[in-house]
Amino acid sequence: MNSNQFVKKLSQMIFVSAGLLFAVTFSVCPMSCRSSVENLELLSGDFSVPKITKFCATSSNSARIDFSREVELKNTELFLSDEISSMGNVECKYEENTVLLEFKNETAIGIDYKIEGMAFDSAGNSLTFSVPFKGFNSNPAKVIITELRNAYGTRTIKETKERLHRSEFVELYVLKEGNLSGLEIISAANGDKTKFILPAIEVKKGDYVTLHMRTIVAEGLDGEGMFNELENNLKLSTHEDSCDTARDLWSECTKKPFAASDIVVLRNSNTSEILDAVVFAKSDCTEWKKGISDFASIVSESGVWQDGASVENAVCCDNVTPTATTRSLSRQNLKEAIAAYKNGQPIVNGKDCWIVAKTATPGYKNSDIPYVKK
């Protein structure tokens, strides 16, 4: 076979192969594509995971969890927050979207615990959860806010050149003895970022408790003299604004705890109930920022601030500044509040109950001398 005949024969073989390939491809592809579409099975239903919408301890040996839908819990156990070993299984009772939990062992006031388990909805979707909480406070103290300084400042002593630092603080007065566990001070502007959760401390009627809202680390202080008075030694804290006859507690926060115009709230961290509040604003503030406005609505609904927590009903705080931290916002109706609580009447609080006092008195009886700008 010469070269011309070889090329001709090879061309014929390639043409035949190409034809066969085209025929096979044409016959298989349409059938294959049609078959895939016809046999494709689309799954339908809700594949979202159930969510926890609320949790609260209801007694020393019980709690409740609200879910976004009805669920069944499995492998639910109680733990100390820093322990691996379980304190026992948790008994569950169901009421629609709510699960009532009963513990085999009682929890202790203020101790950190966690509940772990799995929640399954009717479609088989599951949620593995771990919920931290503090042991239930069966004897909560009744306290109100009586003084507040919303500014941080320094001053220099001429003789020694020593620089004194004054931090923001909130003063509480105890109307009924009990434990402070579960209470928290929170700023509407900053939320959880700078909130102060009070420790489990027993207090007596008539006590003052000063919450210093930041630990000062400027100029190498590193918290010098800023000690939490958790026991009976009320002289332990020695930093500026500490009081030897009242309890001083220091927040671990090192940042600005309040905004210039803000709402500071005392609330039950377990139930989110608003217990008291102070609403203050600069004179040039015409409306709350979004985060604060949300809190303002909640405070207004609670009724703890007379006539609602609007900017118009805020205490003017123009004269409490970083260069004037000897002043404070001072509540003036403590006697009336004590009498109202004793008689089971609502405690009045609002713009007219407060002044800018010339002298801050954390831990002591409030000054009734207002600051008057000259």
Rank of each mutant, 00 (worst) to 15 (best):
F6D: 11
K9W: 06
L10W: 06
S17C: 13
A18V: 14
L20D: 08
V24L: 14
V24T: 14
T25N: 10
R34E: 07
S36W: 03
E38L: 12
S44V: 14
V49M: 12
K51Y: 00
T53D: 04
N61C: 03
A63D: 01
V71F: 01
K74A: 10
T76N: 03
L80E: 13
L80P: 00
S86C: 02
N97Y: 06
Y113P: 01
I115Y: 02
G117L: 00
F120I: 13
S126L: 00
L127H: 06
T128I: 10
F136V: 05
S138R: 07
K142A: 11
I144W: 01
I145H: 03
E147S: 14
L148T: 08
K158H: 04
E159C: 01
E162A: 14
L164H: 12
E168P: 04
V170F: 03
L172W: 01
I186R: 13
N190Y: 12
G191F: 07
T194L: 08
E202G: 03
E202D: 15
K204G: 05
H212I: 07
G220C: 08
D222T: 10
E224C: 07
E224L: 14
M226E: 15
N228A: 01
L230F: 11
N233K: 10
L249H: 12
V264E: 08
V264D: 04
R267P: 05
S272Q: 15
D276F: 07
K282W: 09
K290A: 14
A296V: 06
S300Y: 07
Q306F: 07
T321F: 04
T321N: 06
P322E: 08
A324N: 04
T325N: 12
K335T: 03
A337G: 00
A337E: 02
A340Y: 05
N343S: 11
Q345P: 01
I347G: 06
G350T: 03
K351G: 04
K351V: 07
V356T: 13
A357K: 08
A360T: 08
D368A: 11
Y371N: 06
